[in-house]
Amino acid sequence: MDLSIVILVICLVGFAAIHSLLASLPFKRFIRRSLGSKADKLYMPVYNVIAVITIVPLAYLLYKNPGPFIYIVPSPWRWLMVGGQVIAAIIGPRALKDAPHRFRLHSQLSAPDTPEAGHLDIHGVYRWIRDPFLFSGLVIMWLTPFMTVNLLIIYILTTIYLIMGSLHWESRLVAQFGNEYLEYQENVHRIIPRLKGYHEKKR
């Protein structure tokens, strides 16, 4: 195996390990115990900064060592693909805005049907898709209008990691929202958007 691919895979595994640790419930409980209520405001900004810092080396190495080209999509199709990437890139921030209660540390560590856990409250992009972050990540990657050997390997491994991360994230949401989320899972797809928006039953 080419040395550049080995280095890229090691960087990706390192990023995945750090990302998984920071996202784990035991680590979140430790942060909550250590910082108290301050953790609720600090966790997400610090988490995002660390995610960016740890992904930069991988992006740089891919830029320096892309490997042989497999294909390059010609115009005008490449611009359609880029347009799809731009739309997908907007979905992530929108998803954070549409469900801030899902990302509050004290809520994530609470049991279902408690005031701290809160109500599922489905609106915005979540009416059409359960995991907009997985959807946008896959679209941004696989609509890249060119492909190299190294990029393909990283995209395949990242896709596996994102899907596994989505499964873990949903198990945490079930732990937080209980039957509300189980009912939601039955009506909205994880990756493929619904044609008709989902409406919660009034409680």
Rank of each mutant, 00 (worst) to 15 (best):
A39Y: 01
S75N: 10
K97L: 15
Y43C: 08
V52G: 12
A88G: 03
N65K: 07
I55C: 08
Q85S: 05
V52C: 13
T54K: 04
V86Y: 00
L58V: 03
A39E: 01
D98W: 03
L61K: 01
N65Q: 11
A89I: 04
K28L: 05
P100I: 10
P74A: 09
I70S: 06
K38W: 13
W79M: 03
I90Q: 07
A59M: 10
F69P: 09
S34R: 11
F30W: 13
K41A: 15
W79D: 04
V46E: 07
Y63K: 07
P76L: 03
A99W: 02
L58P: 02
F69G: 12
I53K: 03
N48H: 11
K28N: 03
I70D: 05
Y71K: 04
D40H: 05
A51N: 11
H101P: 08
M44T: 12
F27S: 10
M44P: 07
R32T: 14
R29G: 06
I55G: 02
W77M: 06
I90N: 07
S75T: 11
L96V: 12
A39C: 08
R29D: 04
I87C: 02
M44E: 14
L62D: 02
A59N: 05
Q85E: 08
L96E: 08
W79L: 04
P74S: 13
L22S: 11
K41I: 13
A99L: 06
N65A: 13
P76H: 02
Y47L: 11
V56M: 04
S34I: 08
R33M: 14
V86P: 00
A89S: 11
I70L: 15
Y47C: 12
I90K: 05
L35W: 06
V86W: 00
A89F: 05
P66F: 07
I55Q: 04
I90F: 15
R94M: 15
G84Y: 01
F30V: 08
P66S: 09
A23R: 03
Y71Q: 06
K41F: 15
A95R: 00
N48F: 14
M44I: 13
S24P: 10
A89C: 07
P57W: 00
A51C: 11
S75D: 13
K64Y: 14
V49C: 14
M81G: 01
M81D: 02
R32G: 14
L25W: 09
V82C: 00
L25H: 09
W77N: 03
R78Q: 10
Y63S: 14
G92Y: 04
K64P: 12
I70K: 04
I87K: 00
P74V: 08
L58C: 01
P93D: 02
P74N: 08
Y63N: 12
I70A: 08
P57L: 03
W79H: 02
A39M: 07
V49Q: 07
G36I: 08
L58G: 01
K38H: 13
R29Y: 06
I90C: 15
L61E: 04
R33C: 14
I91Q: 00
P68I: 11
D40P: 06
D40L: 09
Y43E: 06
V73N: 02
G67N: 05
M81R: 00
R94S: 14
V82Q: 00
I53N: 06
K97S: 15
F69V: 13
V56D: 02
S34E: 10
P45W: 04
H101A: 15
P76Y: 01
Y60F: 12
